[in-house]
Deep mutational scan, measured.
Amino acid sequence: MSIQHFRVALIPFFAAFCLPVFAHPETLVKVKDAEDQLGARVGYIELDLNSGKILESFRPEERFPMMSTFKVLLCGAVLSRVDAGQEQLGRRIHYSQNDLVEYSPVTEKHLTDGMTVRELCSAAITMSDNTAANLLLTTIGGPKELTAFLHNMGDHVTRLDRWEPELNEAIPNDERDTTMPAAMATTLRKLLTGELLTLASRQQLIDWMEADKVAGPLLRSALPAGWFIADKSGAGERGSRGIIAALGPDGKPSRIVVIYTTGSQATMDERNRQIAEIGASLIKHW
Score class of each variant (00 low, 15 high):
residue 48 D to S: 15
residue 251 G to H: 05
residue 36 D to R: 04
residue 52 G to C: 04
residue 152 N to G: 13
residue 260 Y to F: 02
residue 123 A to N: 15
residue 153 M to K: 14
residue 284 K to Q: 07
residue 143 P to V: 06
residue 68 S to M: 15
residue 263 G to A: 12
residue 202 R to V: 06
residue 108 E to P: 00
residue 77 A to C: 00
residue 189 R to C: 11
residue 139 T to V: 08
residue 67 M to L: 13
residue 112 T to Q: 04
residue 100 L to C: 08
residue 253 P to V: 13
residue 241 R to H: 07
residue 231 D to R: 10
residue 265 Q to S: 09
residue 183 A to L: 10
residue 85 G to N: 15
residue 72 V to C: 08
residue 214 V to N: 07
residue 222 A to R: 10
residue 96 S to D: 00
residue 152 N to C: 08
residue 257 V to L: 09
residue 164 E to M: 00
residue 154 G to Y: 13
residue 121 C to V: 05
residue 279 G to K: 05
residue 102 E to G: 04
residue 28 L to D: 10
residue 204 Q to W: 00
residue 128 S to L: 10
residue 136 L to I: 13
residue 77 A to E: 00
residue 85 G to H: 15
residue 199 L to S: 09
residue 218 L to F: 05
residue 267 T to H: 13
residue 43 G to L: 01
residue 130 N to C: 13
residue 275 I to L: 14
residue 102 E to H: 15
residue 218 L to H: 13
residue 235 A to R: 03
residue 107 T to V: 01
residue 92 R to V: 06
residue 78 V to I: 01
residue 125 I to R: 00
residue 181 P to V: 05
residue 158 T to V: 06
residue 91 R to F: 14
residue 198 T to F: 14
residue 261 T to Q: 10
residue 173 N to T: 10
residue 227 W to M: 13
residue 148 A to F: 12
residue 166 E to K: 13
residue 277 E to P: 12
residue 284 K to G: 07
residue 286 W to C: 05
residue 39 G to R: 09
residue 164 E to Q: 00
residue 224 P to E: 02
residue 232 K to W: 01
residue 241 R to D: 08
residue 144 K to T: 09
residue 249 P to G: 09
residue 71 K to M: 00
residue 179 T to H: 01
residue 28 L to K: 03
residue 155 D to G: 07
residue 285 H to R: 02
residue 100 L to Q: 01
residue 163 W to V: 11
residue 163 W to F: 10
residue 218 L to A: 09
residue 101 V to R: 09
residue 50 N to K: 05
residue 204 Q to K: 01
residue 275 I to K: 13
residue 254 S to N: 10
residue 28 L to M: 15
residue 132 A to F: 06
residue 129 D to S: 00
residue 256 I to T: 07
residue 216 G to A: 06
residue 199 L to R: 08
residue 130 N to Y: 01
residue 149 F to V: 04
residue 37 Q to W: 11
residue 159 R to L: 00
residue 103 Y to C: 01
residue 259 I to L: 12
residue 39 G to D: 10
residue 271 R to D: 05
residue 180 M to K: 04
residue 140 I to D: 10
residue 224 P to G: 06
residue 227 W to T: 14
residue 112 T to C: 14
residue 156 H to Q: 05
residue 75 C to Y: 01
residue 215 A to I: 11
residue 116 T to I: 05
residue 161 D to S: 05
residue 151 H to E: 04
residue 223 L to S: 12
residue 203 Q to K: 10
residue 91 R to I: 08
residue 61 E to D: 07
residue 222 A to W: 13
residue 249 P to I: 02
residue 180 M to F: 02
residue 70 F to P: 03
residue 229 I to L: 04
residue 99 D to L: 13
residue 108 E to R: 01
residue 76 G to P: 01
residue 79 L to P: 10
residue 227 W to Q: 14
residue 51 S to E: 09
residue 47 L to F: 02
residue 100 L to A: 09
residue 273 R to C: 06
residue 211 A to W: 07
residue 160 L to S: 07
residue 176 R to M: 15
residue 79 L to D: 15
residue 153 M to A: 10
residue 35 E to L: 04
residue 110 H to I: 14
residue 281 S to K: 09
residue 234 G to E: 12
residue 40 A to R: 08
residue 239 G to V: 15
residue 91 R to H: 10
residue 148 A to S: 12
residue 44 Y to A: 02
residue 107 T to Y: 14
residue 80 S to K: 15
residue 58 F to R: 00
residue 61 E to T: 11
residue 86 Q to M: 06
residue 68 S to G: 00
residue 148 A to M: 00
residue 252 K to I: 09
residue 235 A to W: 04
residue 85 G to V: 14
residue 80 S to N: 11
residue 80 S to F: 05
residue 48 D to L: 08
residue 182 A to H: 08
residue 199 L to I: 08
residue 244 I to E: 10
residue 131 T to W: 08
residue 60 P to F: 07
residue 233 S to G: 09
residue 155 D to E: 04
residue 153 M to V: 09
residue 214 V to F: 14
residue 29 V to K: 02
residue 236 G to H: 01
residue 281 S to I: 01
residue 272 N to F: 15
residue 245 A to V: 08
residue 239 G to K: 09
residue 58 F to W: 00
residue 88 Q to H: 12
residue 28 L to R: 10
residue 206 I to K: 14
residue 148 A to R: 06
residue 26 E to F: 03
residue 105 P to W: 07
residue 283 I to S: 07
residue 228 F to C: 02
residue 195 E to Y: 00
residue 36 D to W: 03
residue 218 L to T: 03
residue 50 N to Y: 04
residue 242 G to K: 04
residue 173 N to Y: 10
residue 74 L to E: 14
residue 189 R to G: 11
residue 80 S to I: 01
residue 42 V to G: 06
residue 170 A to H: 07
residue 240 S to D: 14
residue 93 I to K: 04
residue 86 Q to P: 09
residue 227 W to E: 12
residue 130 N to A: 03
residue 129 D to F: 00
residue 256 I to H: 07
residue 148 A to G: 13
residue 89 L to E: 10
residue 103 Y to Q: 05
residue 44 Y to H: 02
residue 92 R to E: 02
residue 81 R to F: 01
residue 131 T to D: 01
residue 141 G to I: 01
residue 162 R to Y: 12
residue 75 C to L: 15
residue 260 Y to S: 05
residue 171 I to C: 06
residue 42 V to E: 04
residue 255 R to C: 13
residue 187 T to G: 13
residue 210 E to V: 12
residue 141 G to W: 01
residue 175 E to K: 13
residue 69 T to C: 03
residue 206 I to T: 10
residue 250 D to E: 09
residue 103 Y to W: 00
residue 78 V to N: 12
residue 251 G to F: 10
residue 231 D to C: 06
residue 242 G to E: 04
residue 279 G to C: 05
residue 147 T to L: 04
residue 277 E to Q: 12
residue 26 E to G: 15
residue 113 D to E: 00
residue 238 R to I: 08
residue 262 T to F: 06
residue 147 T to K: 08
residue 92 R to K: 02
residue 191 L to G: 10
residue 93 I to H: 02
residue 123 A to I: 15
residue 52 G to W: 06
residue 131 T to Y: 08
residue 107 T to L: 15
residue 264 S to H: 11
residue 35 E to Q: 10
residue 212 D to C: 06
residue 58 F to S: 00
residue 128 S to R: 02
residue 131 T to A: 03
residue 156 H to M: 07
residue 262 T to E: 14
residue 249 P to H: 07
residue 150 L to P: 14
residue 284 K to F: 10
residue 280 A to Q: 10
residue 110 H to D: 00
residue 63 R to A: 03
residue 54 I to G: 05
residue 77 A to Q: 00
residue 197 L to W: 08
residue 88 Q to N: 15
residue 262 T to S: 05
residue 195 E to G: 05
residue 42 V to C: 13
residue 181 P to T: 04
residue 258 V to E: 15
residue 189 R to D: 11
residue 97 Q to E: 15
residue 238 R to E: 03
residue 265 Q to E: 09
residue 162 R to T: 09
residue 205 L to V: 02
residue 73 L to T: 12
residue 24 H to A: 07
residue 169 E to T: 10
residue 279 G to Q: 03
residue 186 T to I: 13
residue 119 E to M: 00
residue 185 A to H: 02
residue 27 T to C: 02
residue 43 G to C: 05
residue 26 E to W: 15
residue 142 G to F: 06
residue 99 D to M: 07
residue 25 P to A: 10
residue 178 T to R: 11
residue 37 Q to F: 14
residue 211 A to R: 06
residue 107 T to D: 01
residue 271 R to T: 06
residue 239 G to F: 05
residue 69 T to Y: 00
residue 239 G to E: 09
residue 207 D to Y: 06
residue 146 L to K: 15
residue 222 A to V: 06
residue 103 Y to G: 01
residue 68 S to R: 00
residue 106 V to Y: 10
residue 260 Y to T: 04
residue 201 S to R: 08
residue 232 K to M: 08
residue 35 E to N: 05
residue 113 D to I: 00
residue 107 T to P: 13
residue 50 N to D: 07
residue 159 R to E: 01
residue 120 L to F: 00
residue 115 M to T: 13
residue 63 R to H: 14
residue 214 V to P: 14
residue 199 L to V: 07
residue 221 S to I: 12
residue 170 A to Q: 07
residue 252 K to S: 10
residue 43 G to D: 00
residue 259 I to E: 05
residue 162 R to G: 08
residue 285 H to K: 01
residue 94 H to S: 09
residue 226 G to E: 13
residue 198 T to G: 12
residue 79 L to G: 12
residue 231 D to Q: 11
residue 221 S to Q: 08
residue 139 T to M: 02
residue 165 P to K: 04
residue 142 G to I: 03
residue 281 S to H: 06
residue 205 L to E: 03
residue 202 R to D: 05
residue 201 S to G: 10
residue 152 N to S: 10
residue 274 Q to W: 11
residue 240 S to N: 06
residue 54 I to D: 07
residue 188 L to G: 10
residue 240 S to I: 01
residue 55 L to K: 11
residue 200 A to S: 12
residue 78 V to F: 14
residue 194 G to S: 11
residue 36 D to Y: 14
residue 270 E to P: 09
residue 172 P to H: 13
residue 187 T to F: 07
residue 137 L to T: 15
residue 201 S to N: 14
residue 278 I to K: 09
residue 169 E to L: 12
residue 222 A to S: 12
residue 51 S to F: 01
residue 93 I to C: 04
residue 78 V to Q: 03
residue 264 S to N: 01
residue 89 L to M: 07
residue 44 Y to I: 01
residue 31 V to L: 10
residue 49 L to A: 10
residue 234 G to Y: 09
residue 95 Y to A: 03
residue 55 L to Y: 13
residue 252 K to E: 09
residue 221 S to C: 05
residue 230 A to W: 10
residue 53 K to M: 06
residue 67 M to Q: 09
residue 259 I to T: 09
residue 139 T to Y: 06
residue 34 A to H: 00
residue 151 H to A: 09
residue 81 R to M: 01
residue 190 K to T: 15
residue 267 T to R: 13
residue 67 M to A: 14
residue 156 H to K: 13
residue 91 R to E: 04
residue 110 H to Q: 01
residue 159 R to T: 00
residue 272 N to L: 01
residue 52 G to V: 08
residue 25 P to V: 03
residue 269 D to N: 04
residue 229 I to N: 08
residue 179 T to S: 10
residue 174 D to M: 06
residue 195 E to H: 02
residue 42 V to A: 12
residue 275 I to S: 13
residue 115 M to H: 12
residue 239 G to M: 11
residue 49 L to V: 05
residue 261 T to P: 03
residue 191 L to A: 06
residue 162 R to H: 03
residue 63 R to Y: 03
residue 71 K to P: 01
residue 233 S to A: 12
residue 151 H to P: 06
residue 107 T to M: 01
residue 27 T to A: 05
residue 195 E to P: 08
residue 143 P to Q: 03
residue 189 R to H: 13
residue 283 I to K: 11
residue 90 G to T: 02
